[in-house]
Design a protein around this nucleic acid. Structure first.
Lengths: 109, 109
DNA sequence: TGAACATATGATAATATATTCATATGAATA
DNA sequence: TATTCATATGAATATATTATCATATGTTCA
């Protein structure tokens, strides 16, 4: 997994993005572009949690959270596993953290 | 401007994000989460362009493009300057490229 | 097996968003 | 200064999205 991104590397990586990729990119960012979803992602930053815990942390009702969890799952930004009655969710990979970090850097300037 | 992001740096940067910041983050990503806007941003990757050029590149009508340019401008992702009759737009900073690059990295896996 | 707990899901209503159309604004120039 | 070119903008429509409500599914355990 990539861990550093120099200016030069970015220039290289970003060259020649197809229309399809741009569409996929928009779809990806759309997922991050909702308060509830980004709060869920941030809630999972340090540790996996079950649905009840997430609901408590966000102070939101279970149905709304489950609907958004499904979207995050479908987008492969989170993983799920069953633990008895509960479903435990966790971030899918480090990219989620990286993307949020880049965004945070931007808004702080 | 930050140019490299180690795992350790990300852990540090991302600690303690407030609810307000999470909201702002969602707002930021929402801007990237639209095909037209991300195509405009990508169109401006290598050089500034005026509205007519952008319209031609995206094969979209002028009004739709102008509406989205305004949103990008308001979000401070692009800059504008007048050049005679034309308005010339350019990316506001390197962060735009970085964020798109991170997204591209993610979808390619 | 049935009751209780945990989560998921379908339908609906409310809200937000993008594009289009018509038109306004602003700059250059004949 | 009247016309043309370039861009911006308001209103309206169409579409997408979110939260809520009611209920279904799945798991545990008495």
């Amino acid at each position: 997994m990539a861990e550093t991104y120099s200016k030069k590397k970015i220039e290289h990586l970003v060259s020649n993005i197809s229309e399809t990729e741009l569409s996929d990119l928009a779809e990806l960012f759309k997922i991050f572009g909702d308060s509830t979803r980004i709060r869920i992602l941030y809630d999972l930053f340090d540790s996996e949690k079950n649905v009840t815990e997430i609901c408590e942390d966000l102070e939101m009702n279970q149905s709304a959270v489950s609907h958004q969890l499904k979207i995050l799952k479908t987008s492969k930004l989170i993983n799920a596993r069953r633990e008895g009655k509960a479903m435990v969710y966790s971030l899918a990979d480090e990219h989620v953290k990286t993307i949020i970090t880049m965004g945070k850097e931007h808004i702080e300037e």
